[in-house]
């Protein structure tokens, strides 16, 4: 296993206007690589397991940064750093679910440069894939993790479809829970995709985790005010409290009135390739008051239907427990 840690020769483009970035992205297509904070990118390049010909550094494009209020909620530029997201007063005031999630990403330094766009679009962390093995996701024809002997403690309990890698992003479940939508641009225009549809599993596209096509750039994330100031709960369980990816995370938004939950979003991270809406839980708690009784009543709804692998059965209990905790907090 050759061990590299110096990036190979590659071109670097540093556009300052979105249009130029879009031009480059469309011209280079698969040969180009969009660069946010680079915290996922550099690992791939240093390992030499992905070999784009050019990086398109988006950091100089001021229009892609920043957080602002809109008539219907908030808009966050895709190049906004996770630190800004975690500490922004608007987000903290009304959408703290997102800032609570953002602050759990990796480490302070990674959050200082890592962008919300990069965090959402980052590739899966399956260690076989990252080692450069030619598995399904890498274009090969087998999965190393989904075997009786695979070391698959971190892998999926839902949604296996040849690949059993999980979504690594801490902010993705929060944005799905907030019913956010993704603003995607290309030279041919703009499309807005609901967060829930933005992430795709291996059954849809085994090579990518989002609907982004070559040439497209995620320019912003829109958070509607649907869940502004709702009751939020975010929890991430990881081995270590810094750097480590979630074993399971949960992002919950609950709209309460009259002492009962009117509507809610329960979204789990790291249990399948995309953030997983726990719709059975949402249905079960509708019209009930938060608290011990409701928490107990959801039983194993969160994990129902899970198909654990050899080493990740614990994720079923964990996702059940986290769903309950959201109702107890």
């Amino acid at each position: 296993m050759p061990s590299h840690d110096v990036m190979p020769d590659i071109e670097l483009y540093q556009p300052v206007q979105v249009e130029d970035a879009l031009d480059l992205a469309s011209r280079l297509a698969e040969r180009g690589w969009l660069l946010g904070g680079g915290q996922d990118t550099y690992g791939w390049l240093k390992d030499r397991n992905k070999s784009p010909e050019a990086m398109i550094d988006l950091n100089g494009i001021e229009a892609l940064r920043g957080i602002r209020e809109t008539a219907s909620g908030l808009e966050i530029g895709a190049l906004t750093t996770l630190t800004e997201v975690a500490t922004n007063p608007l987000i903290q005031a009304s959408y703290s679910l997102l800032s609570d999630a953002a602050v759990k990403v990796a480490s302070p330094q990674i959050r200082n440069v890592g962008t919300v766009g990069g965090n959402l679009v980052q590739d899966v962390r399956c260690w076989y894939y990252r080692r450069g093995l030619s598995c399904y996701r890498a274009g090969g024809n087998l999965c190393y993790a989904d075997t009786p002997q695979g070391m698959n403690r971190e892998h999926a309990i839902f949604g296996a479809s040849r690949c059993v890698a999980v979504t690594p992003s801490d902010t993705a479940p929060a944005l799905v829970a907030l019913d956010a939508s993704m603003v995607i641009r290309s030279t041919s225009g703009e499309r807005v995709v609901p967060a829930a549809d933005f992430f795709v599993g291996p059954n849809v596209d085994i090579r990518h985790t989002t609907v982004l096509q070559p040439g497209e750039i995620l320019t912003a994330v829109r958070i509607p005010n649907t869940w502004a100031n709702a009751t939020f709960y975010f929890e991430k369980v990881a081995d270590r409290n810094v750097w480590d990816f979630a074993l399971v995370s949960i992002a919950v938004a609950m709209r309460e009135s009259g002492g009962v939950i009117q509507d809610s979003r329960f979204v789990a991270g790291a249990v399948q390739c995309t953030p997983r809406r726990l719709e059975a839980v949402e249905a079960a708690v509708r019209g009930k008051a938060r608290g011990e009784a409701t928490a107990m009543s959801i039983g194993t709804l969160a994990s129902n239907g899970a198909e654990p692998l050899t080493h990740n059965g614990f994720k079923m209990h964990l996702v059940d427990n986290l769903a309950k905790r959201a109702l107890l907090a």
Binding site: E11, L12, Y13, P15, V16, Q17, D20, G60, E62, G66
Partner: peptide
């Protein structure tokens, strides 16, 4: 969103000069 005044007017910089 404001424009960073420190940024140059150059449309983009190619890294291979």
């Amino acid at each position: 969103m404001s424009v960073n005044p420190r940024l140059t007017r150059r449309r983009f910089i190619k890294g291979v000069i």
